[in-house]
Design a protein around this nucleic acid. Sequence first.
DNA 1: GCAAAAGTGTTGTGTATACACCCATGG
DNA 2: CCATGGGTGTATACACAACACTTTTGC
Lengths: 232, 232
Amino acid sequence: METDYARTRISPPVAPRVDVRVVLFTVGEGRLWVALAHGGASYSLPQGDPWPEEPLDGTATRVLSDELGIKERYLEQLYSVSQVSPGDWSVTVAYLGLALTGGRRSAPILASWFDVTDLPPMNPLDRRIVDYAVLRLRAKLGYTTIAFHLLPREFSLSELQQVYEAVLNRRLDKRNFRRRIQSAGFLEATGESRREGSHRPARLFRFRAAHDVEAYLTPAWASSLEGEQTTS
Amino acid sequence: METDYARTRISPPVAPRVDVRVVLFTVGEGRLWVALAHGGASYSLPQGDPWPEEPLDGTATRVLSDELGIKERYLEQLYSVSQVSPGDWSVTVAYLGLALTGGRRSAPILASWFDVTDLPPMNPLDRRIVDYAVLRLRAKLGYTTIAFHLLPREFSLSELQQVYEAVLNRRLDKRNFRRRIQSAGFLEATGESRREGSHRPARLFRFRAAHDVEAYLTPAWASSLEGEQTTS
DNA sequence: GCAAAAGTGTTGTGTATACACCCATGG
DNA sequence: CCATGGGTGTATACACAACACTTTTGC
């Protein structure tokens, strides 16, 4: 959204433009993917400008919906940065989003998925935002239930472990993983199991929503006053 | 900073105003204090609008300097919120700041120190920002060296413990505290000690800066590209 | 010698890690 | 019967909590 600041004689402008960018992750094929849009010689984060009366996380959701055709499962604000370039002044609000890809690696509309361990050329700010989002996602795996937003309602413990391994980019011990997860108490066995190969079927689990504790480093109030934070 | 949006016929405005607010903490008399400015019937956070070419944390520093006459020791971005009221649209960027008060409870210029456990009436957004800042400060005490910014260069272990107790608002065991802190390895004995009463003198310590690890949930890059985060 | 804060160790309890084999199924 | 992934227990090391007395000083 180019404002009419250009018509003023003042340079740089007297008020910043605000834009919202989203680092959207998904997990598949044992890897962590991020959605990037092709823009000229390099790739960039999906982004958009907020509308009046629209909360910032609403902008983030809209960007994902319009630009990628994807509805995120989880959204969390990361950081805001002010950037000045000749004749332009903008404040960027960065978000971290999580989504499911419908089973296989279905591409988003105007972007593609990239392995976070092998990113294409990007502008420096977007690259730093992505790196920071990865850092934060990895950190939050340890003390929140954020991983659940990368899985469908019902899942096996092996699938959950694969999500952890993809995000952390390292192997975990199966027994220790299961003990830790199960003793944390936010899993609920569905009673069902799933046969899907020439091996023993996997028991299925779902979440108990009450244990969604990830709020503690993200302001819980953001949604109440204007709706900054959403969870699915 | 009122822009010329008022001259347009569009309501609400087509671009938000950006403002920066700072939750400035200090510790003294065994309590955690926050600086609030008196504004009408209630109190509010020190705030200001960014200038062109000025990084957001520069705005925060300037607000503290101009409005309170205080130079912060530590500054960290908390969160951004968009707020719409009839005819006005603003994006607020909130910061957490830490400062020393020069030994005694010297009042800031246009504000006063309030005990965080006994806050005066405030507007709802500012109140939530303060509550969140307290939450984050307490959490960060546990896994960072943020407490050092609430002490002078040299300090005794008892003084350090008093900072922890003031921020957390509870008593800690002296022996466990000392063992934890000392084994963490970021303290360095100065060799000096301080006599200051009819009791045994306290050995003095200082920080080893290399152990300032608090960056991990705050983007380390913010300062490199435009200077969002500062530390003393 | 007494008041006041500094300083110091041990024990138990819980939590994380390392590690290897049997189970149920499909083909 | 074999290949495949699902599922399980134990021993060890480390981190954290509870807890009380001696030391050094000023007066």
